[in-house]
């Protein structure tokens, strides 16, 4: 008998009977999801801007990061490269990326998180290894709570997906909040109308 079988047999023998019926959760939704999303995201260290066109993203980058060389973007309408070199051989090649611009599927109002999946990341490592992360999310795609978020992604086929809520952070040293722990030092979310 393998460890697997022994564990499973013990579980089967010992698991209790629980007869309580299914429990459903009724949840309240924020009155204005878009405003809530913006407020929460700013409160957790992110920046958020509402824009009418993608051109505003370029203007923002030129103004905020004037001397930045290594920008990578998955958004074809933006004048940035999709790949670093001709062929990226390993995720390590993204280590010099200063700004990554990616498309988020939707945002969650209650916690300021943006959902993105691997096919929108160029590489799994990119949203984490870049120094500054820019996410573009359609302004109409802000759901009130995580309940709607999971409802929305239920049938989605992805190999890797993540909620990103603000820049990478830590408060491990005396509870002092520091932005930019291991991942991006800044996160800007553009809500595209």
């Amino acid at each position: 008998m393998t460890s697997r079988d022994r564990i499973l047999q013990t579980v089967k023998k010992n698991q209790p009977v629980y007869t309580e019926g299914p429990s459903e959760i009724k949840h309240t939704e924020p009155a204005n999801a878009l405003e809530k999303f913006k407020n929460v995201l700013v409160s957790i260290g992110g920046a958020v801007l509402e824009i009418q066109s993608l051109g505003e993203v370029k203007q923002f980058i030129e103004k905020t990061f004037p001397n930045v060389q290594h920008i990578i973007s998955s958004v074809s309408q933006l004048p940035y490269t999709k790949v670093l070199q001709q062929s990226v051989v390993s995720p390590h090649d993204f280590k010099h990326i200063q700004i990554a611009i990616l498309e988020g599927k939707f945002g969650v109002a209650e916690n300021g998180a943006v959902w993105l999946t691997e096919n929108a990341m160029l590489d799994r490592a990119l949203p984490f290894i870049c120094e500054n992360l820019i996410l573009i999310v359609p302004a109409i795609k802000i759901v009130p709570t995580l309940h709607e978020a999971y409802y929305l992604t239920d049938a989605e086929q992805y190999n890797f997906g993540t909620f990103i809520a603000g820049p990478s952070k830590t408060a491990d040293i005396e509870q002092s909040l520091v932005l930019g722990a291991h991942g991006p030092k800044s996160l800007t979310v553009f809500l595209l109308h």
Partner: peptide
Amino acid sequence: LRLLARSATGQPITTYSSHFRKPR
């Protein structure tokens, strides 16, 4: 995920909640 970070540190959610399904 609604409960975890709020209970832990008072954050609405952790910065990253990563869902690993298949290996890269």
